[in-house]
Computed example of a mutant assay.
Amino acid sequence: MAAGLNGVGIRACELAAAFSSVEEVTVLAPDIPHPEISAIWPGLRFQRGDAGSAQAVPGRDILLYGFATEPAAIRQFKRAGGTVGFDAIVWPLEYLTYQSVRAADDPDRAYARHLDAYLNRLRLAHRFLVASETEKKVLAGMLSIADHERVRSTDQSLDDLVAILPIGFSQTNENTANPASTSGKPAIGDAPVFVWNGGLWNHYTPIPAIDALAELDREGVDVRLWFLYPQRGTPTAAYRAAVAASESRPALSGKVRFINGGLSMAERVDVLRHATASVCLYPPHALWDLCPPMRLRETLVYHLPIIAAERGALGGIIAAEGCGATVRTLDAEAVAAAMWDCLDTSGREGMRAAAAGMAAAYSYEKHVPEIHMWLQGGSSP
């Protein structure tokens, strides 16, 4: 997305948009937002700085923070009398996959730094948001280790401490803010395009998607695979492997595209509106058993079919709702078969209809009024 907004940054802005219907909201950000971001959420107030720079009104102001907020800034806001809530949808298990940890001279020490900051965020929070019932159970275990005195002194249901807010979307988003396509002809051209609509992080496995594309190409099917998010910082092992896999197949030249320069907001909207399906592949991993990844959002916003591994929270949603196709294994034939399912016009339209039908349940606007009351001390949603 424009100026690097993605993942949990999108969730932050969309939660702010939803909360703004019931409360005055300020979005604290390291930089002034790109004009394309401001155009999506013109009613949001953005302030450059961190939680430590905000002036908390005791007993009224609430700071909702994520996995990258500095503990010192949270502590300062809390000391000023504000309520602090941790949107705990990123787990220490993910830190083990960070390229900076894997490539460190001392990976254990690098991981320990991330873990120490995470535990500080955990101990500082008055309340917690998680994305699923399974995540609530994991959080209960972590709190019983990291903050057992608080667990012992609260209601053992933990409903006073923890509320569930699924991975979802705001009804005010880039798709509704851009009602018309950028041109009469889709930006992606005439061939069907599958999109990898998230980062190439190490807990994902992109190579099976490239293998499947090669399988379809051998069968004479003209399709494309676009990786929509530019690589930032140190290239991950997953990114390097995907590039190498693509370059090793001359027949796929021009058919696999890495959007290294990023897309404008209008371009991204146009691509996602006209894409055939998104692809989200990963090996069996406990991380994905907890809740679906953020890229489910595009299925909800654009009614875009999604291909994912059968195991995991995302695979469970696809199986229950019919909004895409799942694969039991990551071999090329299995992924290619799932792509075939999405290429079939009737099948794809059924998936799109299913995505449209399930979207309302994931709207942040549906959940925010109860979450707002709970953050202010009311009963758990």
Rank of each mutant, 00 (worst) to 15 (best):
Ala3Glu: 14
Ala3Gln: 11
Val8Asp: 08
Val8Leu: 03
Leu15Cys: 12
Ala16Phe: 00
Ala18Asn: 06
Phe19Cys: 09
Ser20Trp: 00
Val25Ile: 05
Leu28Asp: 04
Ser38His: 11
Pro42Ser: 03
Asp61Gln: 08
Phe67Arg: 13
Ala72Gly: 08
Lys78Met: 02
Gly85Pro: 01
Ile89Met: 14
Leu96Arg: 12
Ala104Leu: 02
Arg109Ala: 14
Arg121His: 04
Val138Arg: 15
Leu143Val: 03
Arg152Lys: 13
Thr154Arg: 15
Asp160Glu: 15
Asp160Met: 12
Ile164Ala: 07
Asn173Glu: 01
Asn175His: 14
Ser181Ile: 00
Gly189Tyr: 04
Asp190Pro: 01
Phe194His: 09
Phe194Asn: 07
Gly199Tyr: 12
Asn202Gly: 08
Ile207Ala: 12
Pro208Trp: 00
Ala212Phe: 07
Glu215Leu: 08
Asp217Lys: 15
Val221Pro: 00
Leu228Arg: 07
Tyr229Leu: 11
Arg232Ile: 05
Ala237Asn: 08
Glu247Leu: 15
Ser248Trp: 13
Gly254Leu: 11
Ala275Gly: 12
Ala277Lys: 10
Asp289Asn: 06
Asp289Val: 02
Leu296Ser: 09
Glu298Phe: 08
Ile306Pro: 08
Glu310Asn: 14
Gly315Asp: 08
Ile317Lys: 09
Ala319Val: 01
Ala320Glu: 12
Ala320Asn: 11
Val327Gln: 13
Ala336Met: 01
Met339Gly: 14
Trp340Arg: 14
Met358Thr: 09
Ala359Leu: 07
Glu365Leu: 07
Leu375Val: 07
Pro381Leu: 14
